[in-house]
């Protein structure tokens, strides 16, 4: 039972990643609307930022899987 709660808490890291990626994508859309010719550069920066932000969610996910199934 406690293990399940621990796994749920670990997977909560997804909240941060979701908020972060949401803000980043919103800003990217805004800046592409303002400067469509820089879309390539903006996309590159967005991809990098999303990859880094997403990593925290992945860590939480891996930890929760480890808690649930790898005892």
């Amino acid at each position: 039972m406690l293990v399940a709660i621990g796994a749920a808490v670990a997977v909560f890291t997804g909240v941060g990643a979701g908020i972060g990626i949401g803000i980043a994508t919103g800003k990217a859309a805004e800046s592409i609307a303002r400067q469509p010719e820089a879309a390539g550069q903006i996309n590159k920066a967005l991809l990098l930022g999303c990859a880094l932000a997403e990593a925290t969610a992945i860590y939480g996910f891996v930890v929760s899987l480890a808690l649930m199934f790898m005892q």
Partner: peptide, 16 residues
């Protein structure tokens, strides 16, 4: 470590 866990975690996550 982060390169490794990112790739592994994503593939494992989608697999699960």
């Amino acid at each position: 470590l982060s390169l490794c866990m990112r790739l592994f975690g994503n593939v494992l996550g989608s697999f699960v």
